[in-house]
Design a protein around this nucleic acid. Sequence first.
DNA 1: TTTTAAAATGACAACTTGTCATATTATGTT
DNA 2: AACATAATATGACAAGTTGTCATTTTAAAA
Lengths: 212, 212
Amino acid sequence: MPTQTFFNLSEEKRERLIAGAMKEFSAKPLNEASISNIVKNSEISRGSFYQYFEDKKDLYFFLIGKFRCNYHNLMLKSFQEKKGDFYEGFKLFSEKYVMYIMESKKFGFFENMYLHMNYQINREVRVDFKGKQTRPTKDERLIDVINRDNLKIDSENELLDILKYFLSMLNDTIMEGFWKELSVKETQNLFIKRLEWITYGIAIPEKKEGNV
Amino acid sequence: MPTQTFFNLSEEKRERLIAGAMKEFSAKPLNEASISNIVKNSEISRGSFYQYFEDKKDLYFFLIGKFRCNYHNLMLKSFQEKKGDFYEGFKLFSEKYVMYIMESKKFGFFENMYLHMNYQINREVRVDFKGKQTRPTKDERLIDVINRDNLKIDSENELLDILKYFLSMLNDTIMEGFWKELSVKETQNLFIKRLEWITYGIAIPEKKEGNV
DNA sequence: TTTTAAAATGACAACTTGTCATATTATGTT
DNA sequence: AACATAATATGACAAGTTGTCATTTTAAAA
């Protein structure tokens, strides 16, 4: 986390540093980016940098937090629009989300982020459902907006687990999209195919005794 | 890929280098590991290193290829043992595979690999089904050993896509296991839960008209 | 024995990073 | 205004990194 000193900075200087960092992180992934370049880009002395951030990662995760799509609301709206239907809601959400990432002005930054995403980065990208859930807000809770009637889900926790898993799958799919240089549309379709697999299963359901 | 010079080396020297590299990569992830340490560990001159490998990554990917579980046969045997049943076969395979990774002598190496796995590393870990498939061997083909009768799968390609997806999901789960410091058993169960989701779906199947 | 090819070596330039004593600029306080 | 004090800025620096390359050593061939 950046120090208080960083937030005390004049907006001009703070933005200058952020822009200089984004330039570097858009050109190179975390492990290749250098602080030397960032301070050169933003015309800030090396010593100052270390007064604001602990190290390169500290700055990087701050930027991820700043520019990532906070998809909680995006999900909420998508599920509401599709009247709580799991498959349709998630499909709509994923389409919007993929577009946000892949058509963003910050394309280079996100591209490097996804291509070098590991578990630590993955965690930073994800939003904490649990946190949002316990802290009462005026907004509706995500899990209340999803219709569970036609899902094989017993507890709220299981639904949360599934949501978390779907999100990490979505991120994996975007990673694959960047790697294979897929278009937005192709990436969306790749995800939708997987969404279908998981939602409806790949096994043909056995005919229930009672129905025969 | 290592140069020919590397393979011309005496076995003693080659093993010395591999051991020195494994020591470093077991202690530190790829981006923190240093060539300086590796050449120190293996008592090889810096110049020689660059005669064998292009850079650190070149060596790293060679080691992954050397020590990764070539799971093609493991899958084949698992599916054969379970008479081609998708769910049971994959379950058995995943249990063996997780155990191989997490109880290996190379634990530190694998741990760092999984915790810092990105798409590039992920690709190196995966076996190329397509390659194995076209090259005719005396072994049975994996896709022939899986019973497709009770799967919603039309083409061989779709089955391959699903297999690839399940494998990357398995690797993700192992990554999560390392991150959360889960036991072998817990990691296996986490995967099995997801395997169940995807195989049978999370949606309750609608009753077919014909059956009512 | 001489020639030629292959492999080994460590000094080196050009880069990193994080630290720290010092200089500069604000913000109070008599 | 003059002083004290806290906050911020600075760049030189040690200690590390990487990849190269002219040179030496070793092996193979003529």
